[in-house]
Amino acid sequence: MINIESRTAKIVRFIFLGIWLIISLFPLYWIVITSLKPAGAVFRYPLQYWPAQFSLENYINIFSKAMFGRFMINSLIVALAAGVIATLISLLASYVLARFEFRNKTAVLMAFLVTQMIPAFIALGPLYLMMVKLKLVDNLLGLMLIYIAVCIPFSTIMLRGFFANIPDALEEAAMIDGCSRIGALFRVVVPVMKPGIIAAFLFNFINCWNELFLSATLMNKDANKTIPTALNGFITTFNIDWGSMSAAAVLTILPTMLMFALASRHIIQGLTAGAIKG
């Protein structure tokens, strides 16, 4: 920018940014603070904005009284497996879409894009009936298969964007040097695309980790529930124990926030690449 910002404009700008920072962070602050109060102090007036006494009681409760450890392991298994497999499959598909010309390519891309417009839960009922037939209700494998399918379109589109930034001369050179096409892809292109692949994986992982409605429809037994489904069970009860709930919420948010913090630059880059290039 060329014109110099006036002093008042600057002050106004920083006041606005400061207010928004507080608004953004406060809900997170509040849930963390609630989770760290002793169980009895959560429902007590006046509200304590800084607990008089810190306690891990709520965290201990969710592991001892509810099977939170089990829910976490279930979520982790499903999100990791689905995230890895979906990313690999998308990598192959996006390679074809980025590097080859073939008939109906636009139709294929549209078919993938349309799935982003239609919410996954439109297929909830049919998917449930399908899983009944396949005997995969209440089975982590069934959920995994569906999550892979849900993840593929977006991560394919995202990875295709990253492929576009890599000149195909790179592979051609490797192929002239005697690499096979697959060899060129995995030895030359994949290392260069690492940030893109990591971003796609994290994106898939976060989505599977957070998914609620499919899991809530397919998982009935407590032992098979993922975290969001378990929390969904807790909020429908009449009296919510907000101490335990906030501890569970913090433990659910923590992993995705860490991942986001580690790779936010790549994720944002992947998300916005298309929006500005046109």
Partner: peptide, 16 residues
Amino acid sequence: SLAASSDGVPGEGSGV
């Protein structure tokens, strides 16, 4: 154009 600007697809110039 919808495809190009929505979800991370550079419309053209994919190098092929």
